[in-house]
């Protein structure tokens, strides 16, 4: 018998603290599988956010830095400039990246910083108790938009991938989802491309991953995956918004 599916070495094995059915755990695994398959666990440095995944450093079996809220792209820039030969990535939620960290992510992309960003978009603040996020859909109820996000007073959600793909410095930008196995497989391909692009020197790469938040959406985990498909995907279309001209060299070598 041969194992076809097991815990990737780049995960420490410590059980995740996430709520039952929260798909952060799937995304952690996809990143870890990618790092294993590219053989870069010992030459990768991760930068974690503030938010539900603030403890990602406990789950990842590689060098890590814990950044202040929204500043992971700046921290990652500092790391990458000191170790240009190493692989550097950030893992951030939508509050971290699209609210307080907007300037950092925009300028990291504009600079074409050779880092990879895993951007988890669950359209809400999880850790702090279900508040309105920049990505919360109009009409969506949260603890700070109790009667539904009001476009008049609270504006409309930010489509980060499209926004960043207008920047010349952005090398690879894709939006994926993890709400079912088919999409999980596609998500992993994009994550792998993002890392492979960095390894071949292509500038800034980001994968926006639509993710569920059963607790703060107030839905059963299975309903949450359906809600994501029916509500998030229409507003946040999946796909590749920026692709580097030549296919990533490392990608070809690896396959």
């Amino acid at each position: 018998m041969v194992k076809v599916f097991e815990r990737p070495k780049s995960l420490t094995g410590k059980p995740f603290h996430y709520c039952p059915g929260c798909t952060h755990g799937i995304i952690h695994r996809l990143v870890a599988e990618t790092i294993d398959e590219l053989g870069i666990r010992e030459t990768t440095i991760g930068v974690g956010p503030v938010g539900c995944s603030v403890f990602i450093f406990e789950y990842m079996n590689l060098d890590f830095q814990q950044a202040s809220h929204g500043r992971a792209p700046a921290v990652a820039t500092g790391v990458k400039r000191v170790h240009p030969g190493k692989t550097v990535f950030t893992y951030q939620g939508d509050g971290d990246l699209a609210a307080i960290g907007t300037a950092e992510i925009v300028h990291a992309a504009a600079r074409g910083e050779r880092i990879t960003v895993i951007f988890v978009n669950n359209a809400i603040y999880g850790m702090t108790g279900g508040q309105l996020a920049p990505t919360t859909l109009v009409g969506m109820e949260t603890t700070t938009s109790p009667v539904g996000r009001n476009q008049e007073t609270q504006g409309s959600p930010v489509r980060v991938s499209e926004m960043l793909s207008t920047l010349d410095g952005a090398g690879y930008i894709a939006r994926v989802s993890v709400h079912d196995p088919k999409h999980i497989i596609q998500a992993k391909k994009a994550i792998r491309k993002a890392f492979a692009n960095q390894m071949s020197g292509v500038g800034f790469s980001l994968v926006e991953v639509l993710s569920t938040c059963p607790t703060n959406w107030g839905l059963h985990p299975i309903e949450a995956t359906k809600w994501l498909a029916d509500n998030l995907i229409p507003y946040y279309p999946l796909g590749e918004f920026k692709v580097p001209p030549a296919p990533a060299k490392a990608e070809r070598e690896v396959e």
Partner: peptide, 13 residues
């Protein structure tokens, strides 16, 4: 704000 966090990353590296 970003500059000091770049320092954080570089110092940590």
């Amino acid at each position: 704000t970003s500059a000091i966090n770049m320092c954080y990353g570089a110092a940590g590296a």
